[in-house]
Design a binder for these strands. Structure first.
Length: 270
DNA sequence: ACTATTTCCTGGATGC
DNA sequence: TGCATCCAGGAAATAG
């Protein structure tokens, strides 16, 4: 499930491989497409455009487009991978995977394919994309703390709220809360200044380390090269229900908060 | 204005 | 072995 580190890994890989390439033609699958913009709108916006750069914003992948001749037309192609979406660069003769929803033929002779079995992913075209929430790696400690002021919702839910913070998903929320020693059900507003400073620190540390390791490969996640990430071996609570806490040996608990599974150590987290 | 719950979707795991 | 059921979860929609 691509969260910030996975999306960052994918965007960096794509930028390295296809920045500067030009979109020759576009194929969009039939039936209910996972499109936010209409198919014709997307096709028109991509046709004959140069991919100037590929980058990440929150959990979104942003393709900066340029008209191939004059460098106008600054539209952006936005891809959200949802749970199971992937973007693959391959040759045209590579077998087309089931659940392939979009294929861009590139002037270099390669193809960029969007594959998403569960169809939670979304494609759209927009003039200037701006993720609603703050980037956890860029926001200041004070502004980070201010996000949670007065919020009665559990800190876990607040971390997942993309309007507040962009890019944090279930894995990294659980891992950051464990490292900060904070229980996921704590009301966001009840966290002290120290709690929040610690939480921001651990969140940044976890995200950076995960980026360094290429993300967490669970449920088939691979980057645009087909390579797996390695942060999953660093998970201390996520997916470890019943297993001993790596710090104190207490069995890790799993509870459901707002429909999301949440893992924590009842002794280390208060 | 907030917060909580439901819905979308498919493949893999589980149970009988 | 086969079939039904459950579960995973990001974010939008809906309900409270």
């Amino acid at each position: 499930m691509p969260e910030l580190p996975e999306v960052e890994t994918i965007a960096r890989g794509l930028n390295q491989r296809i920045a500067g390439d030009v979109i020759e033609s576009i194929w969009l699958g039939s039936k209910p497409e996972p499109l936010k913009s209409s198919a014709s709108e997307i096709a028109a916006a991509l046709q004959a455009r140069k991919i100037a750069a590929v980058r990440r914003s929150g959990k979104h992948i942003v393709f900066d487009l340029e008209s191939a001749e004059n460098k106008t037309s600054n539209a952006q192609w936005i891809v959200h991978l949802g749970m199971t979406g992937s973007l693959l660069v391959c040759t045209p003769d590579a077998g087309r995977e089931k659940h392939t929803h979009a294929v861009l033929q590139l002037v270099s002779g390669r193809e960029l394919r969007f594959v998403d079995p569960r169809r939670f992913g979304r494609l759209s075209v927009i003039e200037k994309f701006a993720a609603p929430g703050a980037e956890p790696l860029e926001i200041s400690s004070e502004n980070f703390a201010a996000l949670f002021r007065g919020r009665k919702t559990p800190i876990k839910s607040a971390l997942l709220n993309q309007r507040l913070l962009s890019g944090v998903g279930n894995i990294y929320a659980d891992e950051a809360l464990f490292r900060a020693g904070i229980r996921p059900r704590r009301r966001a507003a009840s966290l002290t200044r120290d709690d929040l400073r610690k939480l921001h620190q651990t969140l940044k540390r976890v995200l950076k380390e995960a980026i360094r390791l290429g993300g967490s490969s669970i449920s088939n996640y691979v980057d645009s090269n087909g390579d797996e990430g390695y942060f999953q071996i660093k998970h201390r609570v996520y997916g470890r229900e019943g297993k001993p806490c790596l710090v104190c040996k207490t069995p890790i608990k799993r509870i459901v908060i707002a429909g999301r599974s949440s893992h924590y150590c009842p002794k280390c987290q208060r």
